[in-house]
Design a protein around this nucleic acid. Structure first.
Length: 272
DNA sequence: TTCAGCCTGTCG
DNA sequence: CGACAGGCTGAA
């Protein structure tokens, strides 16, 4: 589900509502999931009474800072973090609940239908190691660094953007949308790009992500923001999920294929 | 570099 | 029933 714009939207929602709030209680609802994640319940419950000092996003990861511990969350395909205001007469009822954090004014629910999300708690000594393991964020990366990485890449562009070790944040939706807008084939190799191609990709990547954040992300099936509301960027999708429909530029039916085991939609005429 | 696997749900 | 779905890992 969530790629950079969706995770960023959730982050902003949470910052607005629960930054600086104290964790009053923690309710685990899916012990088998938490066990698979190797969550130490001792660590988990040690967050009780702690203040949520900071919320960061690194690529697709959310990074919650407490006094001694850091809670790190990756939402996988169907993870969601949804705030439920306590001072209300109707409350959210949801399936696939993993756990909930109780704050003074809000309950924060972690829901994950397919359970591909990841959750871990680390101490201060592991903080640097984690941060170093996440590649430069797509919104932060400089042109020089981007150019260096992509121009050395031997594989197809699609794989470059899906692989989070080069640039972090893009997933299947935004990669297909980016390559279409840049008029570059998902099969084209990184080292085959001209300087012009790289400039275009870089510029459109940043614009695309910013625009998607403005519209609060893309909701296809499951994604909802921190308030449980869908985003609207799916209305601006040009190719993702549109196989067989006419290309918005030239009218050629959009092709669909698998690349890296991921559905890939593109215009065989416009994208070279 | 490919591909099964982790899960659950929906659609044809 | 099989195919597919905003992701990622680890093994062959």
């Amino acid at each position: 589900m969530p790629e950079l714009p969706e995770v960023e939207t959730i982050k902003r929602d949470l910052v607005a509502k629960i930054l600086g709030a104290q964790v009053i209680d923690i309710k685990p609802y899916d012990p088998s999931f938490l066990k698979r994640q190797k969550i130490d319940f001792q660590d988990l419950f040690s967050l009780k009474g702690q203040i949520l000092d900071k919320i960061d996003r690194f690529g697709k990861y959310l990074f919650f800072s407490f006094k001694e511990k850091f809670l790190i969350l990756h939402l996988g395909l169907t993870g969601a973090l949804i705030l439920d205001e306590k001072n209300k007469d109707t409350h959210l009822l949801m399936n696939h609940l993993i756990l909930s954090f109780e704050f003074k004014q809000y309950l924060l629910h972690l829901r994950d239908i397919r359970k591909f999300g990841k959750l871990f708690i680390i101490g201060k000594e592991e903080r640097e190691k984690f941060l170093n393991s996440v590649a430069e964020d797509a919104l932060e990366i400089s042109y020089e660094s981007f150019k260096r990485k992509i121009s050395l890449y031997k594989g197809p562009l699609k794989s470059f953007f899906l692989n989070q070790k080069f640039v972090s944040g893009l997933g299947n939706i935004y990669t297909d949308e980016l390559l279409f807008r840049a008029k570059l084939s998902p099969f084209k190799k990184g080292f085959e790009l001209t300087e012009e191609d790289i400039k275009t990709l870089f510029k459109i990547m940043k614009e695309l992500l910013q625009e998607a954040i403005k519209l609060r992300g893309s909701s296809i099936r499951d994604y909802v923001d921190g308030m449980g509301q869908p985003g609207r960027f799916q209305e601006r999708h040009l190719v993702y999920g549109k196989k067989g429909l006419p290309c918005p530029f030239c009218g050629t039916p959009l092709f669909y294929t698998k690349l890296n085991q991921r559905g890939t939609t593109y215009c065989p005429n416009c994208q070279k």
